[in-house]
Structure formats: C-alpha cells, structure tokens
Simulated assay, not measured.
Amino acid sequence: MDRRQLEYFLAIVQTGGFTSAGRRLRVAQPSLSQAIRALERDLGTPLFDRLGRGVGLTAAGEALVRPAKQVLRDFATARASVESVLGLTGGRLDIVALTTLAVDPLAALIGRFRAAHERVDVRVTDPELDNAVTGMVLEGDCELGLAESPGGVEGLDHLRLRDQEFFAVLPPGSAIDPAHPIEVAELAGWALVSTPEGTAMRTLVDRELGRCGAAPRVAVETTHRAAIVPLVLAGAGATVLPPRLAEDAAGRGAVVVPTTPRLVHGAVMMWRSGQLSPAARAFVELARLDETALPPAGTAGPTRSP
C-alpha cells in the first residue's frame, strides 16, 4: 500500500467512478484501475462493487475511507514539518467553519495569518449542517473547524473562542426604537427569515424563544445565507445576525436592535488530537493570542439605523 494508491482510492470515492476520478487526477483509467487492483490484492479484499457505470463501496472500502484520509494528511504534515525548518514557505490549510464564524472571527484571523505566511493557501469550507463540522475534522476532511460546540469531544482538542452575540435585524421603517433593546419574546410576534433547522441561527432562535415559552414563526426559510439580508431589506421578515453581518445590514437600511436578554452562543476552534501541520499550529497560536487581546463580546455593537 502506498500514498498514490490511497489518493486514487479516495478520488474514486469522492467522484463516484473511475472515469471521473481519472479526469480529476489526470491519470489514464487503465493506470487507475491497475493501482486499485494492486491495492485490493495487497489488502486481500475488494474495495468497490462495480455498479454499471459507477461504483459503490464494499464494507472493507467503507472501513478504509477514514484511515486513508488520515494517512494522506499525515503525509502532508510530514512534508510540511520538514519545510517548516525553513519557515512556512508553502502548503495549504483546510478549515471548515459555520458561516457566521467564517465572517467573524475567521476572516480577520485569516487576514493576519496570510500577512505573516503569504505562501500558505487557505481553503474554507461551509458545512451543509452545523453539526457536520466536528465530523469533517474527525474524518480528516479539514484540519481545523470552527463551530458552536461543547469542548471535550473525544479525539479532538479545542480552543474556546469568545462568545458571539446576535442582534435583531428588522426591515427598514420598522416602528422600533433602535436605542432600546427588544425583548427576545417579542421576536415571536415577527415573521422571521431563517436558515433551516440544525443551523446555528435557527437553533439559537428556537432555543431562546423556547425559554420564553414562545415558538418562532419562520415565514421564509432558506439555505441561501447570502439572501437573508436582502430578504429582510425587502420586507419579507426579521432575522437575527452576529455583529459584522448586522452592521452591514444596518448600513443598507435595516433597523438593528440588541436583545434582552442578549442572544449569545459560544464557539470553539477544534482539531484532531495529536500532531498539527506547521500551518495549522501557527493558525491556532495566532487565534490563541488574538482571543486574549480581544474585548469580550458585546462591548461594541454594530452601527444601528436611526
């Protein structure tokens, strides 16, 4: 078994077939098939069920996916560790983050990281559901993850980030005094624009309104997070957003109001226990220093529409 065979194996898993994997890897299909047959002989079992024009994983193939991802990441870490002797002169850092955390604090952290290590590329992935972040880090798809998550997940180390406050964001012209906080329970009386169940925004709203004995009325549900502010500006409903996004909405005419009690949720940066790549280690240390220097959440809110 070698690195090339595992790389070919994972490409077939990800693309669903030998032909598409060959195109992605720019490898002739006979060479790809030969490498997989050699891997199957070495392991003593088939890894794929041939299903017409596609393939499916056998039980053995399913069992190999996670270790294969980790082996390839270990290869990359080993290479990066050698290169780190001369400084972070290249490579890539993969991060998975909730959309709200990708805006703040991740965007600023990446900016500072890239200023110090301009030859390291950063890829940020947006999970389909918020609870997918932990799995993507555990499975080796991404080296770092940012999510609303408790610490102490087996197999993961973590750094707790500052709490993130959400603000009520109302359509332009709403008869609300932005200088006075809105009661969380009052949000139950608004038609809301929200992401689906299982996302951080929806979980926060459902949880906090539930504590008030109320249920949200989600009038517009969308997976297109970039559409939320335009929907609010168009009068489709109200929403809740973290400071950076709320500030942007206020600048475009929305009425932004703090809530009482404050809508706050925690956040962590997580990674697999054990050795980190030099790039990931540098990023974690940057975040650690950054969080000790930042003021607590809520000391400065977004600019509010008059």
Rank of each mutant, 00 (worst) to 15 (best):
R207N: 02
I176G: 10
D2K: 12
L245N: 08
E197N: 01
V232T: 13
P278C: 07
R53Y: 07
G140V: 08
P258M: 02
R217M: 00
T195V: 10
V169H: 02
A297N: 05
V65Y: 00
A250Q: 09
S194K: 02
R202I: 05
T303L: 15
F18V: 00
R37V: 09
A28T: 04
D248P: 06
D177L: 08
F113C: 09
V137L: 01
G213R: 09
S174I: 07
P258L: 06
A63I: 02
D104L: 14
V103L: 13
S20T: 02
E183G: 07
P243V: 10
L98T: 15
P295A: 04
G235P: 14
A267S: 15
R112H: 14
P150I: 03
H158G: 14
I228F: 09
A279G: 04
T203G: 11
R92L: 04
S174L: 01
M1L: 15
A234G: 12
E221Q: 12
S305T: 14
T99M: 00
G87N: 12
V137K: 03
L138M: 09
A227N: 13
L294E: 10
L101N: 14
G266I: 05
A246W: 04
P105G: 15
D94Q: 02
G298V: 12
A108C: 11
V103I: 09
A21I: 00
T58M: 11
A76C: 03
A76R: 12
T195M: 06
L144I: 08
A80M: 08
Q29N: 08
V82G: 08
T239P: 14
F167I: 03
E128N: 01
V193P: 10
L86G: 14
A185Y: 01
T100F: 01
A297H: 12
Q5K: 03
T292H: 12
G16I: 01
V193M: 06
R3S: 13
V256Q: 01
E197Q: 13
A238R: 08
G251F: 09
E183C: 01
P30Y: 02
T100E: 13
A214L: 06
L39V: 01
A76Q: 06
H180Y: 05
R79D: 12
A107R: 15
L64R: 06
D42E: 15
S31L: 14
D177Q: 13
H158V: 15
W271Q: 02
L109K: 15
H117E: 00
G151N: 13
R244W: 07
S305M: 07
D2A: 02
M136Y: 02
I36W: 03
V284Q: 10
A280L: 11
A200K: 05
R50G: 07
E7D: 13
A115E: 15
Q14V: 03
L231H: 14
E165H: 08
R207P: 01
A97V: 09
P30R: 04
G52W: 15
L138A: 10
A38I: 05
M136P: 03
P105I: 08
I176E: 05
E128Q: 06
A115I: 07
V71L: 00
A132Q: 11
T125Y: 07
D290L: 15
L72S: 06
L156H: 11
W271I: 00
E139S: 00
G52T: 14
V55F: 12
L106R: 12
G145M: 02
